[in-house]
Design a protein around this nucleic acid. Sequence first.
RNA 1: GCCGGUGUAGCUCAGUGGUAGAGCAACCGCCUUGUAAGCGGUAGGUCGUCGGUUCGAUCCCGACCUCCGGCUCCA
Length: 686
Amino acid sequence: MSAPASRPASAPVRVPAGTTAGAAVREAGLPTTGPSAVVVVRDADGKLRDLAWAPDSDAEVEAVAADTDEGRSVIRHSAAHVLAQAVQQVRPEAKLGIGPPITDGFYYDFDVDQPFTPDDLSKLESSMKKIIKAGQRFSRRRFDSHDDARKELADEPYKLELIDIKGAPGEDPGDEIVEVDASGELTIYDNVHAHTGETVWSDLCRGPHVPTTRFIPAFKLMRTAAAYWRGDEKNPQLQRIYGTAWESQEALDAHLQRLAEAERRDHRRLGAELDLFSFPEEIGSGLAVFHPKGGVIRKELEDYSRRRHEEAGYEFVNTPHITKGQLFETSGHLSWYREGMYPGMHLDEELNADGTVRKPGQDYFLKPMNCPMHNLIFRSRGRSYRELPLRMFEFGSVYRYEKSGVVHGLTRVRGMTQDDAHIYCTEEQMQGEIRSLLQFVLDLLSDYGLDDFYLELSTRDPEKSIGSDEAGSARRTRCARRPRLRPGPGARPGRRRLLRPEDQRAGQGRDRAQLADVHHPGRPDAPGPVRARVHRGGRVAPAAGHDPPGAVRLHRAVLRRAHRALRGGLPGVARPGAGRGHPGHRRAGALRRGRARQLKAHGIRVEVDASDDRMQKKIRNHTMQKVPFMVLVGGRDAEAGAVSFRFRDGTQRNGVPVADAVAAVADWIGSRTNTSPTADSFAPAP
RNA sequence: GCCGGUGUAGCUCAGUGGUAGAGCAACCGCCUUGUAAGCGGUAGGUCGUCGGUUCGAUCCCGACCUCCGGCUCCA
């Protein structure tokens, strides 16, 4: 889903004082039309400038072509202006919000009386095409003062707000607001008629822009949506239009092609097509049932996970799905996570005849997290430091109340089963535990076919987190990639999110696996005191002071949800129906059943397709079901004591002796390869 | 939660103010098959749910529910 790679930077261009960058670019013989047309330049300070920019003194600039990330952003931003102009033509009452370029496109927010309809979109596209064809020039104009700007934009309340934000000392509007920036300048872009020189439309904007609207070679409006002004639901809701724009029609087509491909690989679509899981309306939004084939996948993933955890020294625990509220009072969940929890059930209350309460009841809650329960196990008796590290693992089902508008396939659900673990250790053991845990998680993810991901290290937010900085002072852990420091989001009160792998194939980064949180003793929800000693100089020595130091708890979940493994096909560890036998000829019937039995004897899941469909039909069916090994037994194979393989990519391997075939399939599965076998990659021993 | 869209057979979708159709799947036959759809037939729907308008509603109106997209481009 990534955009085509950027072209390398071109040689510097010299812009003589008083002349425009555009003239210098033309002078240098760089393209001014086509996909590689130069759309802006970058000055010596790294700032992007319009081609109409004329420096006061000679300047060295770098040309930025349309088919680069930056070039596309400029095109998209300019397309957003064209969209806004088109909207205000049709709806003069529309007030402008913001209109930035984004990954693969742009959007613009409008305050309008009536939301846009799909019909409006196609009309707006036509209007935009007219504007683009007219070749309006983007002309930069600088306001002399904020008051001038306010006067000119008196009818645009949201723009006025942006001016005020800019005016406020010490307030950085942030990169995402392209209308204004932190510099001293406040600028507006006029769209100037190509022939009359008349300004037809203007928008507050820091720029830069393409020279004329003709430099927007290909665009498409994608969808409408509502968006709160500045992302805050307390603010008015604006109507947003999303679009995409590219340096050429071909690039646009390729992008649409990628979107279609992504849709085909959507786990929700796979879930339905391959009969893996569904979300019955009768059960409720965000609550999945797994069908037999989906169940096989889960079972394989879970069996494998359990085995690996066992080898890595984890112990298995089990906890209930529901608990009295007190547990989550102690943990703090009910104070800061309440809106993410299902409301409590008030139980066991008894009333007197007169209606007064004789026995007060209790509130029970579905658990949104497993940690407090694991803590109770930890605390169930006095713990010795000799027991540490204590690693508890559970496939724990948790229930979270997600707002109705956000549930989404298996990625945002109201009930799910986590591969959840907590490691209780001393502060001294923590570093080593984090190190081994990280390696363990990376290995496991890799076995699931997730080997391309992003790690980040979230640091403590001093305002939100509680407790001292020491135990958790995040230790950077070396791994496949250097973790990126990122303050903030790890900062839910009292917890610290250390690392999370990010699956690149997740697309919009919507999907994140929480990998490790550190919980410091001293928190009310901390694991509790432990008779621990600290290690000094390799020797175990009594902890200083009278207070037991307590255990530190590491928290981690690897897969979190089964869908992660479903993305982009199925991992080799968990394909339903590893092979399908196919009787090529009726006489081969007994034979194929016998061969299926041989495969089953090796623990391979085999189904025999005994339907009387033509072979082409069977191949088509099973290919669409993504069966990795299709085993065909026809008359020729039967006579030769062999079988034939057909793979998902259409390649085949015919006449393989039965014993070799069985061994080769067993080998393949044992190797935990995550790609689909092909005639090339699957090589039975001769 | 909010905004918009959507809901017709198991699936993908047509369609109409006078209680519905196709393809695939299923089932039953015929064909006896060598690498991505053989042929014929049968059956299958409270047109998301509940209300309203109407002589009559799947269609028009309202509410609710489901699902899809989005709610500072961000990992």
